[in-house]
């Protein structure tokens, strides 16, 4: 019995959502009286691998087969499955992102394990193994009971704070026998937006709707986002009109995000938009229409013209940051 967690990194640095997943695994392991093994794939330094101990991992399995550097769900799932078998994992955890959503269902299917995807709570062990997740695109939650021996969870980012402790982990090289068939998908080209904060893990998000009038006005939102260290998002018609790239579209048919702060500017607050953002901890709505439905879902509202309010808010943030030193 043990808990296994797949830890993702970008250029050798573990992602915040994966640290979240490691500490999530550690809490489950503690509750179950067992240990946590993390698995890392690719080029990561020894110090960084060991640092997973700070978040509760006792052991790190490190797979360095260079063919895995191009992500593919088939080969990666094989690695996770092999690791699960090696450590006798009964709970297997990944992140609910494009990596985890492709790998974890394969792992679950192969190991005949029940799966909860997009978990937002720790498992309730007093009721067996019951985990809370979003359903109906954020309009409700479901409590899912897993009854199989092995359980697979993909964890929604920003669901838990990352708590850094003091432990250290042992690192072990972990080789998995992979065949050519496991690499039968060719990666032709990769295009990563460098430097920006990925929307799915951003704690602060500034988002714009049709009320922004056109892409030429987005600079005011970008300035606010920059000042806050926030990612940018948008409503669907904005992406449909190509004012903003499609990956910024949030809502029922776009991405689902749960930042600490969501600032919605010139967005009416249609039910399909709310579905993607109503897990946000705090919502600020800036809109010139007092009847905009979004105000009903907001914590703070500002009535007025976006092009006047947003620069004013940016200045206020700047002043605040300067005072914070």
């Amino acid at each position: 019995m043990s808990v296994l967690v797949l830890a993702e990194h970008a250029q050798g640095i573990f992602k915040k959502k994966s640290l979240e997943a490691v500490q999530y695994a550690a809490k489950i392991a503690a509750d179950m009286g067992t240990t946590v093994t993390a698995i890392a794939v690719g080029n990561v330094g020894d110090g960084e691998l060991k640092s997973l101990g700070n978040y509760g991992a006792q052991q790190v399995l490190h797979t360095t087969d260079a063919r895995l550097d191009n992500f593919n769900s088939r080969s990666w799932a094989k690695v996770v499955i092999a690791a699960a078998q090696k450590v006798g994992a009964t709970v297997i955890i990944g992140t609910h992102d494009t990596t985890g959503k492709a790998v974890m269902p394969r792992v679950a299917a192969r190991l005949q394990a029940g799966m909860v995807s997009g978990a937002v709570s720790y498992p309730d062990l007093s009721k067996g193994f019951v985990v809370k997740k979003n359903v109906f695109s954020g309009k409700a939650f479901a409590f899912v009971s897993i009854t199989s021996d092995i359980k697979v969870i993909s964890l929604m980012a920003n669901s838990f704070p990352v708590i850094k402790g003091k432990g250290t982990a042992t690192v072990e090289n972990f080789d998995v026998a992979l065949t050519d068939k496991d690499f039968s998908v060719k990666v032709v080209s990769v295009n990563k937006a460098s430097g920006d904060i990925p929307l799915s893990e951003a704690e602060l998000v500034v988002s714009g709707g049709r009320g922004m009038k056109g892409p030429e006005n987005w600079y005011v939102l970008e300035a606010l986002a920059k000042e806050l260290g926030a990612a940018t998002a948008c409503s669907r018609p904005v992406a449909d009109s190509h004012w903003r790239p499609h990956n910024e579209h949030v809502g029922q048919t776009g991405g689902t995000i749960r930042p600490n702060l969501y600032i919605a500017v010139g967005i009416s607050g249609a039910i399909q938009h709310l579905a993607g953002v109503n897990g946000s901890k705090t919502i600020v709505v800036i809109n010139k229409d007092p009847e905009a439905p979004f105000f009903k879902a907001a914590d703070y509202g500002v009535l007025g013209d976006a092009m006047e309010i947003v620069p004013r808010l940016t200045e206020a943030v700047k002043k605040f940051k300067a005072n914070q030193g």
């Binding site: 479901a142 409590f143 009854t147 703070y300 200045e315 605040f320």
Partner: peptide, 26 residues
Amino acid sequence: QLSSIVAYEMPPAKSGVKMIDPENMD
């Protein structure tokens, strides 16, 4: 069958919006 939904829950209702003076972003 390896899992089942045992209950649902609605998200907590927002306590109501606090309107801020547009002149006072501080």
